[in-house]
Design a binder for these strands. Structure first.
Length: 444
RNA sequence: GUGGAAGUAGUUCAAUGGUAGAGCACCAGAUUGUGGUUCUGGCUGUUGCGGGUUCGAGCCCCGUCUUCCACCCCA
């Protein structure tokens, strides 16, 4: 038997580049965050949907192709169909809308939390397989819908326990109006990409690239003056007025942004939002407001939550016009950032709230009854399964970050009491009632 | 996909081309109706993988994989 085992070839237990295993220390906080977000989205009346991992390649790539840009995983399936793995949740959602619009009530508000795949070169916070948390509103092209998405972004970060973040907001439509006013609208895609690099390569580099792109120094400077906020503390509405006049007194988009900002102010959350005209978003389907989210202490990680308004995304698949606005949280990037920040969101992850220690093997049945009682109170309770020394049991509890231990023997059983120990402070609550123990655990 | 840097025990790091080591962690034992100290013993490595040069390679050379960084793009 043993000889046979040693002879057998061992397959190297490797995983693909950019793909990862999740150990409990990461999967527990990830699951906890997902659960909180799902509950939170539901509070706003959003409903969950799901779509297939695989789609026809033509469905995901749209008309323009651009396969190399999207770095999509695609292949022929066993029936020779040209298939691809979804690289985001928005494009499959557009397909979903076109297919099911008769079965949906609009405005349709959905959320979708699942994995997506991109064949990019991985880096820290950038993976080939990662989870997106999308939430979108379709069928409402107004400031109220735009605001609701922004408000949900803000409250979602609060719910996740993330504190140091900033939302950078801009308006693609307003920027396009400005470019038209300048007479360079045919170069807009290229200009957007250059502008997007401002924070990374600096003003001088961007200026040089813009000059090259537009052909004149004046236009490059005009664009720079539009995107470059000299005064970072300039009030939102002042910046907006400035952009509006630069765009030739544009009215429609300015009014929309004003209305959105009004709602943010009324809700008292406007401080989290900055009007940053250098935010453009590379994706060309955006038509209105766009936004990115940066963690104050780790701006180089990139955006952890981005999105915007797209008023004709579904037009690839249907003649019906379905205006949408939405946002997507990059959960894996966010978790990587929180890990680097040694955030309590990750470090506090525990497998359970209470462990029932085994002092006396003959009391197993009673331990089980205690466990059932605590579980019925919604307390995650782990009954230690082995008959080991206390030291080993405490080590197990510590490794799993379990805050409380119940250490009970025949004394407690005959008295109808329990002894609860705070495993961190090592404080003992001896001979207390089960109800007292429950309230102590719940208080924490 | 292109360019650059790095890969040694679970982890942090050593080792002039000459027997691969240390701390922490881990496991076992002693003591204990209760683990942070102490003591004793122990384990962990095909030096990422595959070739080459050499009497001899963790070290030099080539390839490959992975990670990290930049480009690109983005969550």
């Amino acid at each position: 038997m043993r000889v046979e085992r040693e002879k057998r070839t061992i397959i190297e237990p490797k995983v693909l580049k950019g793909f990862r295993d999740f150990l409990p220390s990461m999967e527990i906080p990830k699951k906890a965050i997902v659960n909180k977000l799902e509950e939170h989205f539901s509070l706003y009346g959003f409903v969950p949907i799901d779509t297939p991992v695989l789609e026809y390649t033509e469905v995901l790539l749209g008309k323009g192709g651009g396969e190399t840009d999207k770095q999509i995983f695609h292949f022929l399936d066993n029936g020779e169909r040209d298939v691809a793995m979804r690289f985001d949740l928005t494009v499959p959602f557009a397909r979903f809308l076109a297919l099911h619009q008769n079965e949906l009530a609009f405005p349709f508000k959905r959320f979708h939390i699942n994995k997506v795949w991109r064949g990019e070169n991985p880096q820290k916070g950038r993976y080939r397989e990662f989870t997106q948390c999308d939430f979108d509103i379709v069928g409402a092209d107004n400031a109220e819908a735009d605001y609701e998405i922004l408000a949900m972004m803000e409250s979602s970060f609060q719910v996740m326990g993330v504190t140091d973040f900033k939302f950078s907001v801009a308006h693609r439509g307003l920027f396009n109006a400005f470019l038209t006013h300048l007479g360079v609208e045919e170069k807009s895609t290229e200009i957007l990409r250059i502008v997007d690099k401002l924070k990374k390569i600096g003003t001088d580099e961007v200026s040089a690239l813009l000059k090259e792109c537009t052909g004149t120094k004046e236009k490059a400077e005009d664009i720079l003056s539009y995107i470059n906020v000299e005064n970072p503390d300039e009030p939102f509405l002042t910046t907006l007025e400035r952009l509006s006049s630069l765009a030739g007194g544009e009215i429609e988009h300015t009014a929309r942004m004003k209305a959105i900002y009004g709602y943010l102010s009324d809700a008292g959350i406007e401080d989290h939002f900055t009007l940053d005209p250098s935010i453009t978003r590379g994706l060309d389907y955006y038509t209105g407001i766009v936004y990115e989210t940066f963690l104050t202490e780790l701006p180089h990680f990139g955006s952890v939550c981005s999105g915007g308004r797209y008023n004709d995304l579904a037009s690839l698949y249907t003649k019906e016009q379905l205006p949408g606005v939405g946002s997507s949280i990059g959960l894996d990037r966010l978790l990587a950032a929180l890990e680097e920040l040694e955030s309590p969101v990750i470090q506090r992850a525990s497998s359970s709230d209470l462990i029932i220690l085994c002092l006396d093997e003959s009391l197993r049945s009673w331990y089980d009854q205690l466990a059932r009682r605590f579980r019925s109170e919604g307390i995650r309770t782990d009954a230690y399964l082995l008959n080991k020394k206390m030291g080993a049991q405490f080590k197990y509890a510590e490794a799993n970050h379990i805050p409380y231990g119940l250490s009970c023997g025949t004394l407690e059983k005959s008295a109808g009491k329990v002894t609860l120990k705070n495993l961190k402070t090592r404080e003992m609550h001896q001979m207390i009632s089960i109800e007292e123990a429950i309230s102590i655990i719940k208080r924490n």
